[in-house]
């Protein structure tokens, strides 16, 4: 479904991604972990097509298509969804109006008829219930004055309505209380199908005990330095990242190579 090859990207002249290789197949869930500032959000935003980031090398295919050649809205219509680490506020624009417009764009791109206000209203009410969000929020301006947790839940709501093929979740668990975490995780699991995939960025093992990953990748300084199964997440949680960094560094030439480090 998603194939990232040797991806390099920079922002404001600074190189952030320094050669990412990653394959996510249909039906799979992959987790990305890494220290603050290592480039996790950058990766997510580059995949979504944020205009501030420049891809300097490498390629990405999504469902066999050249993802990097598509405009951000085309990526979204093709089924890529990014749950933002910091969802954006749009004062004055009602959430339900906003979401209906996006939903209809996605439908149009699939040659489906647009749906009218009444039908959409019914749809969104059902989805609100499903995601456990406060229904009143859909009549408010997009994310405007939402609490941290409400914003995250709103990302889940939008994802539930748009039914994407690839869900990229950037710290969807940050700022959630224990019960909310559980219910957001349930929401994510409900959306999982054999045809879709999830890429989840997180700092904590906690959400991964609900949304169980098929693979965990450690991103440090713009590179994936280590990949493993779900146990890797637990190991990070207890040991931090330093040991990964050390293990990943090629030995300096003056030091004699030791076993397991070549």
């Amino acid at each position: 479904m998603l194939e990232i090859h040797d991806l390099h990207a920079s922002v404001n002249g600074a190189d952030i991604l320094k050669g990412i290789d990653l394959r996510v197949g249909a039906g799979e869930t992959h987790a990305i972990m890494g220290p603050n500032g290592s480039g996790k959000s950058t990766l997510a935003l580059v995949l979504a097509g944020h205009p501030a980031y420049t891809v300097t090398r490498g390629s990405v295919t999504f469902d066999g298509r050249d993802l990097l050649g598509l405009a951000p809205e085309e990526r979204a219509r093709a089924g890529l969804f990014l749950s933002f680490q910091h969802p954006i506020e749009i004062p004055g624009l009602r959430l339900d109006h906003f979401l209906r417009a996006g939903y209809n764009e996605v439908r149009k791109s699939r040659d489906e008829d647009e749906i009218d206000v009444l039908k959409f209203d019914r749809l969104i009410r059902a989805k609100v219930k499903e995601t456990g969000m406060d229904a009143a929020l859909t009549k408010r301006s997009v994310n405007d004055g939402f609490s941290g947790g409400e914003k995250k839940r709103n990302e889940l709501l939008q994802m539930t309505v748009l039914e994407p093929k690839l869900r990229i979740l950037d710290e969807v668990d940050s700022g959630l209380d224990v019960d909310s975490l559980r219910s957001v995780a349930d929401g994510i699991n409900r959306l999982a199908t054999p045809e879709s995939a999830t890429l989840i960025v997180t700092h904590y093992q906690r959400i991964l005990s609900y949304v169980v990953p098929d693979a965990v990748h450690i991103l440090i300084d713009g590179r994936i330095v280590r990949s493993g199964d779900k146990h890797l997440a637990a190991e990070i949680e207890s040991r931090g990242y330093d040991w990964v960094t050390e293990a990943a560094q090629p030995a300096p030439p003056s030091v004699a190579p030791t076993a397991g480090q070549s």
Binding site: L93, H97, F98, L99, E105, V106, Q158
Partner: peptide
């Protein structure tokens, strides 16, 4: 804001007019 709306499937122009209409 425009990028966020694009991420939900709207073109930049559509995003802008939605924001304006809301305003």
């Amino acid at each position: 804001q425009v990028f966020y709306a694009q991420q939900r499937g709207l073109s930049a122009d559509a995003a802008q007019s939605l924001i304006i209409n809301g305003f």
